[in-house]
C-alpha cells in the first residue's frame, strides 16, 4: 500500500489571521499544518498498518515556511516528505495547485505506483474543499471525498459519506483521491522518538522545473481568480451583555422583539 498525503501550511486558527496584499499572511511563527490534514495523515497510517506493508509520503506545496507542514507529518510517522516550492507558484488558484500536486504525484509514481492520495476535507484558511476533486480530475483518477470512514480491499476503496441529505457508501477503484473528514479518526500524537527523527529526516525539495510544469500555467499568471481587495470586517457595534438577575430571558426576548426577529 503506497499512499501520498497532501498537507497544507496554514495560519494557526488561534492566531490573528490576516491578508497582506491580497495574500494570506503565512509565517513560520504562527503557521502550522492544517489541522484537518492530521486526519488525512492518520487515515493513511492506519491503512498501511492494516495492510501490514507500505509507505506514506507527505506532500506540501508552498513557500519556504511550508516545510513545517511536512515536518509535522514526519512527526506523526510518515516515511517520506516532499516540499514543492517555487516563486512562480505563489497566488495559484485551486487549479494551479492541483496541477502542481498532480505533477508531484506523477514524479513519485516514477519510482513505483501509488494506490491512494489522501487529503483533508478542507484547509482551514480557504475552506473551499475543491482541491481533492480538482486533483482527481487532473490525475484522471477516481475520487471518493468527504469520507467519515475509509477501507481498502480488492483493489477498491470504500468510503462512508455523511452528507446533509443522506449517508452514502461510495466505492472507487484504485488509484483514487480520497478526502477524509474530522469524523474519520482521532489523529495520534507524535511520540518523542519520531519528533527527534523528524528533525533530521530528509525533505525532498522540488521546483517546477523538476516537475516539468510550465511556470506560466500556474501562480498569479495562470490563476483564473484573483483577490482584488481584502479588509478586516468591522466589529459588531452596540454590543450588549447583561447578567441574568431574574429577568435575563425577558430582556433577551425584548431585544429580539424590538429588532423584529421574534
Amino acid at each position: 500500500m503506497r499512499i501520498l498525503v497532501t498537507v497544507k501550511h496554514v495560519p494557526d486558527l488561534q492566531s490573528q489571521r490576516s491578508f497582506t496584499g491580497g495574500r494570506v499572511t503565512r509565517t513560520a511563527d504562527d503557521g502550522t499544518m492544517n489541522e484537518l490534514d492530521e486526519h488525512a495523515v492518520e487515515a493513511a497510517l492506519q491503512l498501511v498498518e492494516a495492510a501490514g506493508e507500505g509507505e506514506v509520503y507527505a506532500l506540501t506545496v508552498g513557500g519556504a515556511d511550508a516545510v513545517v507542514a511536512v515536518r509535522k507529518a514526519l512527526q506523526l510517522g510518515v516515511q517520506h516528505a516532499i516540499h514543492v516550492s517555487d516563486d512562480a507558484i505563489a497566488d495559484s488558484d485551486v487549479f494551479g495547485t492541483a496541477k502542481v500536486m498532480a505533477a508531484a504525484v506523477r514524479k513519485v509514481q516514477d519510482e513505483a505506483p501509488l494506490d491512494l492520495v489522501i487529503t483533508g476535507m478542507a484547509a482551514l484558511d480557504g475552506l473551499t474543499s475543491m482541491l481533492p476533486t480538482a486533483l482527481a480530475a487532473e490525475l484522471d483518477w477516481s475520487q471518493a471525498t468527504l469520507a467519515s470512514a475509509v477501507s481498502v480491499a480488492g483493489g477498491e476503496v470504500t468510503v462512508e459519506r455523511h452528507l446533509a441529505d443522506a449517508h452514502e457508501t461510495v466505492v472507487a477503484p484504485l488509484p483514487a483521491v480520497v478526502s477524509v473528514t474530522d469524523e474519520a479518526n482521532k489523529p495520534r500524537y507524535p511520540n518523542f522518538k519520531l519528533i527527534m527523527a523528524a528533525r533530521k529526516a530528509p525533505v525532498a525539495l522540488w521546483s517546477l522545473a523538476d516537475l516539468g510544469v510550465d511556470p506560466a500555467s500556474v501562480g498569479r499568471e495562470g490563476a483564473r481568480t484573483v483577490v482584488v481587495d481584502a479588509s478586516p470586517a468591522p466589529p459588531r457595534e452596540n454590543r450588549v451583555t447583561v447578567t441574568d438577575t431574574g429577568d435575563g430571558g425577558t430582556q433577551l426576548a425584548d431585544f429580539l422583539i424590538e429588532k423584529g426577529l421574534a
Partner: peptide, 9 residues
C-alpha cells in the same frame, strides 16, 4: 473576520 473581493478573470 475578513471581507474579501475576488475577480474572476
Amino acid at each position: 473576520t475578513w471581507n474579501v473581493r475576488t475577480r474572476i478573470h
